[in-house]
Design a protein around this nucleic acid. Sequence first.
RNA 1: GGCGCUAUCGUCUAACGGUUAGGACGGAGCCCUCUCAAGGCUCAAAUACGGGUUCGAUUCCCGUUAGCGCUACCA
Length: 486
Amino acid sequence: MLRVRFAPSPTGYLHIGSARTFIFNWLYARRNGGTMILRIDDTDVERNTQESLDSIYEGLRWLDLSWDEFYRQSERGELHRSAAETIFAKGLAYRDFTPAAVSEDEEKSHADGQWLFNPAMRELSKEESDRRAAAGEPFVLRFRVPRESRTEVTFQDLVYGAQSKATADIEDFALLRSSGVPTYHMASCADDADLRISHIIRGQDHLTNTFKHVLIFEALGVTPPNFAHLPLLIAPDGSKLSKRKHGPVVSVTTYRDAGFLPQAFINFVCLLGWSPKDDREVLSRQELVDAFSLEGINQSNATVNFTEQDPFDPKAVWFNAEHIRTMPQEQLAEQLLPFAAAAGFSPDRAKMKQVTPLIQERIRLLSDVKTTADIFFLDPLPPYDSAELIPQKGDAAMAATVLERARQVLETAEFRHETLDAALRAAAAELKVKTGQMFQPIRVAVCGRKVAPPLFETLEVLGRETTLKRIDEALRMLPAPLRTEN
RNA sequence: GGCGCUAUCGUCUAACGGUUAGGACGGAGCCCUCUCAAGGCUCAAAUACGGGUUCGAUUCCCGUUAGCGCUACCA
């Protein structure tokens, strides 16, 4: 039975790296008919926050990622303590009565002097240990790393291959804090054993911790699960992604609020450190499930290429644009609604459905609706420079002539883009101006700028009334003496 | 400092020990075209360095360098 878990600690918002870890676990479970478990690793009471927990749920809900079983470590303290008890009873752990390091110097001396264990504490007699404990003296419970009986700890990583580390290089790590609260290593392993996790898929920052975990599993009398460590996601400066240093750009909700599609986000992060080994890049959720395998995961860290000017990796934005383009229009219109409302447009569904096909291949983020669809929702148009009305190789007189003529045509023409196209082309021929010279003034009059969706489709959506009103306004902006009456 | 992991275009990546080292994003240019997009085509751009092994190394081994991680009574 294949069982995987995602075990975040609620000490910050769900960031892109954690999301990817969840996704890889989820993909592996769904691919192989396994069970996905969400376990909140909240043993560090000091740093846990409700906001963080909410952020994790919020992010996962947005991505529409589900789990089959749910646990909170804080509700499983008894299990962790009894597991520690078991290890202690087997003589594989000992009490360390050394007071916690308070000063930085003390900690540093540990680091410099390759601290492995305190011999006096490791070798304390059972009698004295029991006596001091009974007297109420505080202690941490440490794992007694075997140093004589074996020389190294090994395991096979499904991504990084055979791993080994000398027992002489592993320190006697803590299992229980002096408060009696289990440490991460203890709680995590006790839970992984109890929940019968078959594959631990997690960040590479845990690779060296795994030697300790193997020791714990063995001490518990359990065969260790399979391990698969993931290359880390790093910032362009080479440092590990962190909210502290990089701010909200690493938060999943930042992507959501900027107008990313969940599927595009998932697609993007999946290709950071994993490849389907063919040249496919734009993949649906189902295609990802079908293509996913641990063999496709590579070993080197991947950079999320954001900058201070642009918080999103250009490739992530491209993925989003790709997914927007292939999305059914009905769905896209629906997704666009809240972003249009946020832009202050007060859009209705029917109007949005008309506008959507005109902007679908012109937006990269859902929030781009604000800058590309404004002309359909705002009335009147924001002010613009009347010089924009003047066509290439033309002058204000030409602009005025063109607009006057267009106005006449549009007063009676049927507002369907095919007929508008034919009518206005004919008008251009009649006036002996190039089509570009004919269309550009109309476009600017109607959109307030030169860059816009195709003209005739735009007019069709805008309708006769708005179109004529905007042309009249443009005409008023042109110098009066140059206006040609007919 | 010790230990571990990693190293292909700017970025994400592909390449049974044999390829003109491939694809994508981004960049430049051309085409298409009512503007913008989209689309099509083209160009620039990489095997960190040094030693081996081999008829032949991006690929295997060693070293150097660099980056990252762990080295807590954080996770």
